[in-house]
Structures are given as C-alpha cells and as structure tokens.
Amino acid sequence: MSGSTPGGAPGSATESGAPAPQVTERPAPQQEGISERALARIFITPSFVVMAAIALFPILYAAYESLFDFTFFTREDFVGLANYVDQLTSPRFWTAVFVTIAFTVVSVTLEFIVGMIFALIMNAAFRGRNVTRAVILLPWVIPTVIAGQKWRYLFEQRPGYINEWLGLGAIDWLGSGASMFWAVVIADWWKTSPFVALLLLAGLQTIPQETYEAAKVDGATWWQRFRNVTLPLLAPSIVVALLFRSVDALRIFDLADVMTNARLETLSVLAQRSIVRDPQPDVANALAVLTFILIMGIGLLFISLMGRDVVGDPEEGS
C-alpha cells in the first residue's frame, strides 16, 4: 500500500483538471491551477505514507514471521499455521481473550459515563472553569507507569491506603482473580476518563447554543435537552470516542503489568511476555496477529452497528 492508492480513482481525468462528476457533492466553481482530485491526492498522501510505512509494514512483518518456528530470535523452519494452532488450542490464550474483552467492556462503559459527566462540567460556564478543566486532565497527564505505581500502593496489602482507610484489614487486592481485575479497571477508569471527556468536550463545543435556547423555550427539562439535543448531536463524537477507546482498551498492557506484575493476563501482556520475559518470537507474532484480527473484527462490528453516519459518505452525512 503506497501513497498512490488513497488518491483513489483510476483516473485519466486526474491530470486534465476536468471536474469529474463524483469529486464533490455539488459542482463547485472550477479554479485555475491544480485539479480538485490532484489536490485531494496531495492532501491525503502524507498521512497514508506514514501509516503504510509505520503500521502496515509491522503487521505484514509479524504475519510473515508468525509462520516460522523460532529458537530464541533465530528463525528456523517454516511451520505454516502451527503457531496459530498452538495458541487457539491453549486455554491460557482463551482466558486472555476473555479477560481482555471483559476489561474493555467494563472499563469503556465506566469511562464513557464519567467522561460524559466530565465533559458536561468542562463545558459549563462557571468561575474557575479553566482550573477545573486542567485538573480534570491531570490523571491522563501523569505517566502511566507512575500512575500504576500509585494505584498499586493504594491497593497494596500491607501498607495499603485502601485497606487502611476503609478499615478492611489485610485484603490482598492485587493477589489474584476478580479483585485484581477490578483494581486495574478502577485505575484505568481514573486514568482514561479525561481522554473520553476531552473528545466529548470538543464535540459539545460544536453544538450551537441556540439549539439549547430553543429547546429551553419549548419547556424541555435538563434531561430532555440532554436526551434529545445533546446526545443526537454528539453522536459522531461519541462513536469516535467509544471506538478509539475500545481499540485501545483491547490492547491494555501498562497498568496490568505494573499493578499486578503481569499476573492479570491480557492479550498484550501475553504478547509482551513472549517478547521480553520469555522470548518466543513465534508465539509473540502469532499472538499479535490474533489480537489484530480480534480488534479488527470488533472494530468492524462496532462501525457497522453504530458508525454508519461516522464513516458514511458526505452525501449521506451531516
């Protein structure tokens, strides 16, 4: 995939400067100089070149390498799909899939709710709003490794703040199982809600104030205005925020690694382990490709369910 594809059309009309019928929604006044299609191509090329070099190559590389057997980092025999079969028949893999998906569903839901509240507050006018906006962003700004350490100390068994403050005795939150899962969810919830808030805030700011005024005049309560004005107009931002959060949450690694010493095994934790802690590139590559397929599948499902107006054509949108 190179820069030539995105410009798109197999076109001899490209250089001629003739307004091809499908280029704009409406025939715009044709300017002298470069054609619209050439303009589009110039504008879109840089991002796709970067994407292709940086994103596509690693994926193809991993996909290729995943077909071989490895001893440490030395590639040996071609083994076809054997690495995949190994993973797909391993209970550990399926547990990781389950943990990853559960984590994503729970944390993205919680982050969306709190992010929405944050965004509404950040968008409200009151004295001290600037400071509040900055403060709300704080958790996202703190480096994940440091934040993970802080949360780890909060949940720690012995000098743990949470056990101490809530008078819970010596509960080993990060020891195993469900409590470990929830501890990481809470930390991620705290850390990433501001990100959702920022995306939703940007969307909120495009909603014309007059729309609210009109709804208010018609006697709409706050909730009705939220339901019938804010949510529909915010829908594109919401879909983008949920999609990117989900894609990101499906790759959760840092917090799980720092807080639980990688005992909470998500797909990325498994992949990281097979690269760093216990080098098995064949396993790592197969895991990466499987993770990619999983996330791509979920992403496509998500887009086909909710994102019609987000990825749709300009003709049908807006």
Partner: peptide
C-alpha cells in the same frame, strides 16, 4: 488508518 492502533504496542 485505524489498523495501526489494533496491534499490541510491544509487537
């Protein structure tokens, strides 16, 4: 464009 974000970061 999104696909870059669908790969475990370490890999």
């Amino acid at each position: 464009i999104l696909s870059a974000q669908m790969f475990p970061f370490v890999v």
